[in-house]
Amino acid sequence: METTTAGLDTKWWNGGKSPFNVEYGKLMMWYFLMSDSFTFGAFLIAYGTVRFSSNGWPDPNAVFKSYPGASETTNAPLVFVSIMTFILIVSSVTMVLAVHAGHERNKKKVATNLIWTIIGGLAFLGCQAWEWNHLHHEGAWWGSNPFANSDGTESTDNFTNFFFTITGFHGFHVLSGVVINIVMLVMTLLGTFEKKGHYLMIEKAGLYWHFVDLVWVFVFTCFYLL
């Protein structure tokens, strides 16, 4: 008997079953996200390397201290960015609720939660647009850093270059996520998934959206807290 000679592990890979028990698209989404985390990892590690090689670095609390409608002299570090973080976490929850509703094949609930997720994504993008605009008015941009190092010495442009590149790359991911979610919403409302018999596409969009939230956890910590 063949099966007795082959161990349990070999049987698992003998064919006739799906060893990973996920559909192709979801597996590939995972691998895409893995490669994407290498991109973000490389960015953040480059940022860390340059920061470790510098004698001084601007204090994030002295840079990110304003919010919309605040006066010029406002000193409110971490306030605005915590709102942005909160928005992204909530939109992640509504996304996971949409995926959950998809498992129940509840079209209405999927659509409602997707709409909330899209609103959350747009709110986050709006916050980021305001922040970029605000910093730009203060003279910060690629190649221009108006903020002194925390010890009062003259700084280089590394701080703003890394900030705009990495938050920009993340913001671009949020934007693509919003577009993907809008496509998912349209497909849901048109009944595409209903016809297909499953809402697995929502699950893949959800993975992407959670990844965007995951990256923000790292970006937020590295730029605003440390």
């Binding site: 510098s54 004698n55 001084g56 002295a62 010029e72 002299t73 203060e138 003279g139 108006p146 903020f147 002194a148 190092n149 009062g152 010495t153 003259e154 700084s155």
Partner: peptide, 13 residues
């Protein structure tokens, strides 16, 4: 030496 230069026109706020 450069890293000891005090910032002059920075932090204009």
């Amino acid at each position: 030496e450069r890293s000891n230069i005090q910032s002059t026109d920075k932090k204009a706020d």
